[in-house]
Design a protein around this nucleic acid. Structure first.
Length: 469
DNA sequence: GGAACTCGCCAC
DNA sequence: AAACGTGGCGAGTTCC
């Protein structure tokens, strides 16, 4: 493994202070509801067994069994499943894995439109929750607490990683998985959990590198909204109105299907597919009326057919023009920064972070333009983590930091200290960090969430400072 | 019986 | 110039 190491004294100090602060968080750890973990593991096992029983009685399974000549299929084995689907049944995989095998991931299986495969996907999901998360917590717990590790010496970007257990990939988007997993994690008895994250820190840090005027305006003007603007452009909406059915969905499709992938270095074709995938199946490559999400009085496909987009190919051409406009006009200064940074890497063999680190070694174009942003964005959080840890201890708070998820800190808060802690974190993250680093030329903002006293990590709700204090 | 690998999937 | 960046981890599989 390529071993990164800091290139400047300031960079070294950040890692040194960071390791100590993270070590204290590891020591504190997080309370685990052991009884819940055991009971929920058993409940999931019962549900999994019932689903497996039902699956064993399907025509699909019996066929699979026969093709193995008496051997019992292992329904956890994607290799066996892939063989059955793509070699025995001769179905056509929609995509292959890196080694050229037919893919059996969720997207590929759904495309085959075989009802029994939905049961298999449901089983996969439940096993992931039980085996990776609940059992993973139980395996690592000591005296009813888990103490996740936070590493600063692994990621090539100088980001952090976490393990035993990984505190940075606990389900959040899928409601059921989120509930089951986060219901296991609690503040100390009589305490409450607090989470504070930087809003859009990677976008803000990228702006510190290139200072693209369009991007600066988007960051500084609270009325502007680049995801809204891109939704309007991609989907050709005359106006954007969050109260119109479907508009918020399209904003989020533009954000996660175009803006962020473009920043990471994706290109128009993938973006077009991603932004069109809600529109139902395209058996002949052409869209029909009434497909896709509801939009206004009709559907998305009605709207786009009206705009002349009859097929994915036409839509992709449209997205290609938008990509050209995105980098050639809208964010041309950002685009120039990418090119300059790439040239510099080719000349010197490394790329510099604003925080004093260097990323070297063999890198692709996307790596060179992404690493400095990803790394320095995390360093904002790490610097804030160090300062907050120092201040909490100096002021003899009972509240302590317990973890960090790239752009977010998690604290175990003593309830009487809640509002003071909120003030402290706001000050550290939005004032002290930018004061220490003059290269931060855009305002940084945060979002805060808290759990009820003795509430689990699943019960986090937005925190609004009490104005009377 | 363990190391190394593949695949899929969770987070930011 | 290249065609989505960074991690961890479980189960299955292959190799020694």
């Amino acid at each position: 493994m390529y071993q990164p190491h800091p290139q400047s004294k300031a960079a070294y100090k950040l890692l040194h202070d960071g390791v100590l602060a993270l070590g204290r968080a590891e020591q504190r750890g997080i309370r685990l509801d052991l009884k819940y973990c055991h009971a929920e593991t058993e409940r999931l096992t019962r549900e999994i067994k019932a689903l497996e029983q039902a699956f064993h009685h399907t025509k699909f399974y019996r066929h699979w069994f026969k093709t193995l000549g008496g051997r019992t299929p292992n329904i956890n084995s994607n290799a066996q499943l892939g063989n059955f689907l793509y070699k025995r049944k001769k179905l056509k995989p929609i995509k292959t894995t890196v080694t050229g095998q037919g893919s059996t991931d969720e997207e590929a299986l759904l495309q085959l439109n075989i009802p029994e495969l939905n049961d298999l996907l449901r089983l996969r999901g439940l096993k992931k929750i039980r085996d990776t998360y609940l059992k993973g917590f139980l395996k690592e717990q000591v005296g009813g607490r888990v103490h996740p590790n936070f590493n600063l010496h692994i990621a090539r970007t100088y980001r952090s990683s976490s393990d035993r257990p990984n505190f940075q990939n606990i389900p959040k988007r899928d409601e059921e998985a989120k509930r089951i997993c986060r219901q296991a994690l609690f503040p100390s008895k009589g305490y409450q959990l607090m989470a504070v994250d930087y809003s859009g820190i990677e976008v803000c840090v990228s702006a510190c590198y290139h200072q693209d005027p369009t991007m600066m305006k988007y960051i500084k003007d609270p009325k502007s909204d680049m995801h809204r603007d891109m939704a309007q452009q991609v989907y050709e909406l005359k106006t954007y109105d969050p109260s119109i059915t479907g508009h918020k969905v399209l904003r989020s499709a533009a954000k996660n299907g175009f803006v962020f992938p473009q920043f990471y270095g994706d290109y128009y074709r993938n973006c077009a597919i991603s932004m069109a995938c809600n529109w139902g199946k395209l058996p002949d490559g052409r869209w029909k009326p009434g497909q896709g999400i509801p939009l206004g009085d009709g559907s998305l496909s009605d709207h786009l057919l009206g705009q002349g987009h009859k097929s994915l190919e036409q839509f992709a051409d449209h997205v290609q023009r938008i990509e050209k406009d995105f980098w050639g006009r809208r964010f041309r200064v950002y685009a120039r920064w990418k090119e300059k940074t790439w040239e510099q890497y080719q000349r010197t063999g490394y790329v510099e972070l604003l925080t004093g680190f260097r990323c070297g070694g063999l890198m692709a174009y996307n790596d060179v333009t992404n690493y400095p942003i990803q790394g320095a964005a995390f360093h904002c959080l790490l610097k804030a983590f160090v300062l907050a840890d120092r201040e909490l201890r100096a002021r003899k708070f009972k509240t302590r930091l317990i973890g960090q998820i790239h752009d977010e800190m998690i604290l175990d808060v003593w309830p009487p200290e809640l509002d003071e802690v909120g003030e402290l974190l706001l000050d550290v993250m939005t004032q002290q960090v930018p004061e220490e680093w003059p290269w931060i030329v855009v305002p940084l903002t945060v979002d805060m969430e808290v759990s009820p006293v003795d509430g689990s990590w699943q019960e986090m709700g937005s925190y609004v400072r009490d104005a009377r204090k």
